[in-house]
């Protein structure tokens, strides 16, 4: 297992370098310029100077090499300096956002907590809802509960989050007035009242995303359960005289969890990626909102860095899912 992991990690290096180049070129060659946001009242000479000040007039490969250096050397050095009080980075240039002129990693650092709390909670809630629903739907296939579960899952799948989000806002915020429509990022949880406020402002984004996540995962859970439910070993377990609880929760569930755990693990990068639409809709200043904002403003360093971090996460969690598979399924060995 260890050699497998190490080999995969080594292989990931050229893969990620290649991905970084592709991302850089794609983002760079994509139409649009940071200048398109500047009002027409700004004269062209001033625009040219602004572009030069950003370093955006340099050839793309010069910028790529600079970015690689900043990403893999300067930024980690800053991180170490921050942890140990060393001075590895000196005053070397960090990756700066063109839009806010602040270091990209500072922005990411500011935003990760919101994304993890809101999107992470939504994912967790989604899993907690989906797994029991999936199990029970499969156990009572074609029952009323199953039909209802299928219906809700279909809605969760097919209705886009910007629609459910707006619907929830109109119902819960405008009509009922239960929850705020804008996430207050300055809120600090210090006591019970602020905790309640935090829960209130998280409620709608968590519901919207939880529904979408639960829909997908419950379907995986259900079909995986169904597949295993008909297996002979389940009949064996019943013939052994095991209780239904043991049969379903031990024999069937444990085998059914293998593909579901993979799906869940592969979905985790999307937590870090945030939920572009939902975050934007509810004003959660997470990574997704940062990405969409950066795309709108053609803030290339921000977009490139975020896209690359997502690539790293996806490669990483693929590896984790593979390793998990090895632990969960005794039939799979990597050595």
């Amino acid at each position: 297992m260890l050699t497998f992991t190490l080999r995969r990690l080594l292989l990931a290096i050229p893969t990620l370098l290649f991905i970084s180049l592709i991302i850089f070129l794609l983002v760079d060659l994509a139409p649009g310029s940071p200048m398109s946001e500047i009002p027409l009242t700004v004269p062209p000479e001033v625009r040219q100077k602004m572009i030069a000040a950003l370093g955006a007039d340099q050839p793309v490969f010069v910028r790529y090499i600079l970015w690689l250096r900043q990403f893999f050397w300067v930024e980690p050095a800053y991180l170490l300096d921050g942890w140990f009080g060393t001075d590895l980075a000196g005053d070397q240039q960090r990756i700066l956002s063109w839009q806010s002129r602040s270091p990209v990693f500072t922005v990411i650092g500011q935003r990760i907590p919101q994304t993890l709390t809101v999107i992470g909670t939504a994912y967790l809630v989604g899993i907690l809802i989906a797994v029991p629903i999936g199990i029970y739907s499969a156990y009572r296939q074609y029952s009323l509960f199953d039909q209802l579960g299928t219906f809700v899952a279909m809605i969760g799948f097919s209705v886009p989050t910007f629609f459910t989000g707006t619907l929830f806002i109109i119902i819960f915020a405008v009509w009922l007035g239960w929850f705020p429509t804008k996430y207050d990022t300055t809120l600090e949880v210090t006591d019970w009242a602020s905790f309640i406020r935090q829960m209130q402002q998280m409620a709608m984004p968590v519901m919207v995303l939880g529904l979408a996540n639960a829909a997908a995962i419950s379907r995986y859970m259900r079909s995986s359960m169904l597949e295993n439910m008909g297996q002979d070993y389940v009949r064996t377990a019943r013939a052994k005289g095991m209780t239904e609880r043991t049969v379903v929760l031990k024999h069937v569930l444990r085998n059914s969890m293998i593909p579901v755990v993979t799906v869940i693990a592969l979905g985790i990068p999307s937590i870090f990626g945030g939920a572009i639409i939902t975050e934007n809709l509810f004003g959660v200043n997470g990574i997704g909102a940062a990405l969409i904002g950066a795309i709108h403003a053609s803030d290339l360093p921000m977009v490139q860095t975020l896209a690359f971090i997502f690539a790293v996460l996806i490669v990483g969690f693929n590896l984790i899912a593979d390793i998990l598979y090895g632990f969960l399924d005794p039939r799979i060995r990597y050595d």
Binding site: A173, V174, G177, K182, D184, F282, G283, G293
Partner: peptide, 22 residues
């Protein structure tokens, strides 16, 4: 004073005109 950004024009208008949060 607080300036909260993000979302869209519709959401901003709603937060003032319908929910009164802003």
């Amino acid at each position: 004073a607080v300036i909260k950004g993000g979302g869209d024009a519709e959401g901003s208008a709603r937060a003032v005109m319908e929910t009164g949060e802003f």
